[in-house]
Simulated assay, not measured.
Amino acid sequence: MHYTSLTQFISDQNAALAKGPIAVVLVEDDVEINTTLRHNLQLGFKHVIALMPAQFTLPRDLQETVHRVDYNMSREAATEDAINALIAAAPDQWIYYCYNAEYLFYPFCETRAVTEMLAFHTEERRAAMLTYIIDLYSDDLEQHPDAVSLDRAHLDRSGYYALARPDQTKDGHPKERQLDFYGGLRWRYEEHVPPARRKIDRIALFRAAPGLKLREDHTFSHEEYNTYACPWHHNITATICSFRTAKALKTNPGSRYDIDTFKWHNSAPFEWHSRQLLDLGLMEPGQWF
């Protein structure tokens, strides 16, 4: 299932876009494309879409199970343009988006499909879910110069914090049930990260709605989508465990030679299990048990 443009895919795949949840993988380079796609298939997404450069290839099994769409991720606003086009084409469907070398974890994901989790979230009258981007990195940058290794992946077990999100339309007063979250490599190496890119929160799971637009800062035009919980109790949150920041820091000439290791006293091996993330307080089940 190979499409030469997103326009062609949307035109030809009305059936796919009419049944969610849908996972969209935005491919920026050739690192861990296959594992990212397979991870989303294993979670139980009904359809997985790979927006990727034309020169990249997929193995035969993924060619048969993934909607591969030729797409240039290097241009400005590539993420927003793609997701907003899919929002318009898939009304009322749950959509998840991530980049390659990013892996979604939600409470009890080892035994419960993403469809079960989103069904419960929908019953709680929620149309979006907050996800935290938890940085992964190899503990040996000599062996893995791009900082990516599934076998040697580490994360920061502490150093995360939140600040009130100011509402510029109300003289900077905090927005209701909205926070800006920080931590991980973007916090520890903030001198190499532009201020607008330092947040680790992303509304990566959401339900498409008429008029909904994704903005450049990974928030949405409907303010309720940007909240971390409903007014009456806490809701499920999830994490996206991501090598993206570590890759960028080790490939950017401005930071590459300043970093010999990402390990510090709060590093811990990543266990690739939701229990570790729950124990560290990096996501919560809300009322879902």
Rank of each mutant, 00 (worst) to 15 (best):
H2E: 14
T4E: 15
T4V: 13
T4S: 14
L6A: 11
T7N: 13
Q8I: 04
D12V: 03
Q13R: 14
N14D: 10
A18T: 11
P21W: 11
V25K: 04
V25Y: 07
L26K: 03
E28G: 09
E28V: 06
D29H: 06
D30C: 00
V31Q: 11
E32T: 03
I33P: 02
N34R: 00
T35P: 04
T36V: 00
L37E: 03
Q42P: 00
L43Q: 15
K46N: 15
V48A: 01
V48S: 02
P53R: 07
P59I: 08
R60V: 14
R60Y: 09
R60Q: 13
E64K: 15
E64P: 02
V69W: 07
V69A: 08
R75N: 08
A77W: 08
A78M: 03
T79L: 07
T79S: 01
D81T: 15
N84Y: 07
L86V: 01
A89H: 01
A90N: 03
D92C: 10
Q93L: 07
Y96M: 07
C98M: 01
C98K: 00
Y103V: 02
Y106F: 15
Y106M: 10
C109N: 15
E110K: 12
E110V: 04
V114H: 12
V114R: 01
T115H: 06
E116Y: 08
M117F: 13
H121Q: 14
H121R: 12
T122L: 12
R125K: 15
A128I: 14
M129C: 09
M129I: 10
L130Y: 02
I133G: 01
D135R: 06
L136R: 06
Y137I: 05
D139S: 08
D140A: 00
Q143C: 03
Q143Y: 02
A153C: 05
H154I: 01
Y160G: 05
Y161M: 04
A162E: 11
R165M: 04
D167L: 07
D167Q: 04
K170D: 13
D171Y: 13
D171H: 14
G172W: 11
H173F: 07
H173P: 01
H173T: 03
R188T: 14
Y189G: 06
H192P: 09
H192D: 14
H192M: 15
P194I: 03
A196V: 12
D201Y: 01
D201S: 08
R202V: 13
I203C: 05
A204K: 04
L205A: 14
K213M: 10
L214H: 03
R215C: 13
E216W: 06
S221W: 14
T227N: 02
A229P: 08
P231G: 09
W232P: 00
H233S: 14
T239G: 10
S242F: 12
F243M: 08
R244S: 11
T251N: 09
T251A: 06
P253Q: 09
S255K: 10
D258M: 06
D258H: 12
D258K: 12
I259T: 11
T261H: 04
K263S: 12
K263E: 15
K263F: 09
N266G: 09
N266Q: 13
N266W: 10
R275W: 04
Q276T: 11
L277E: 06
D279C: 05
G281Y: 13
L282N: 01
M283V: 00
E284V: 00
P285S: 09
G286F: 02
G286M: 05
